[in-house]
């Protein structure tokens, strides 16, 4: 699945990262607690979150996450967009709620990793 696919499936708006739309995403993490995100390393993953502050971008940076989807129509601030640009992280915003957004992507074949 590519970032473009995620954008389409979630009827999301691209906030930043036109040039990264063809990047392949291998798995996903849906979470509002950043320490939970930091607990499980995944490769080339997307973070789906309802949290909207600069630490989301920092957490994505530490985890090498390539795309962040903000649910419930949350829009990242200019500061967050600048941070994402420096780190080459694509940003999407979707009006879906967390559960629905995760469900759609799961149904389309995106996995979340092994049991804890």
């Amino acid at each position: 699945m590519t970032i473009q696919d995620i954008k389409d499936y979630l009827e999301a708006e691209l906030v930043y990262g036109e040039e990264f739309l063809s990047r392949e995403v291998h798995n996903a993490c849906g979470c509002d607690m950043m320490s939970d995100v930091l607990a499980f390393v995944k490769d080339q993953s997307v973070l789906i979150t309802g949290l909207c502050n600069p630490h989301v971008i920092r957490t994505a940076e530490m985890m090498d996450i390539i795309c962040v989807v903000f649910v419930r129509g949350k829009t990242p601030t200019e500061e967050m967009i600048e941070m994402a640009k420096e780190r080459e992280i694509a940003l999407l915003t979707s009006n879906h709620r967390m559960f629905t957004a995760c469900g759609i992507l799961y149904q389309k074949g995106l996995g979340g990793g092994d049991l804890c």
Partner: peptide, 17 residues
Amino acid sequence: IRNMGFGAGMGLPNMKR
């Protein structure tokens, strides 16, 4: 702190991990 996405009690365990 929790509203900022931290304070889940995973800090030190994550560091150890």
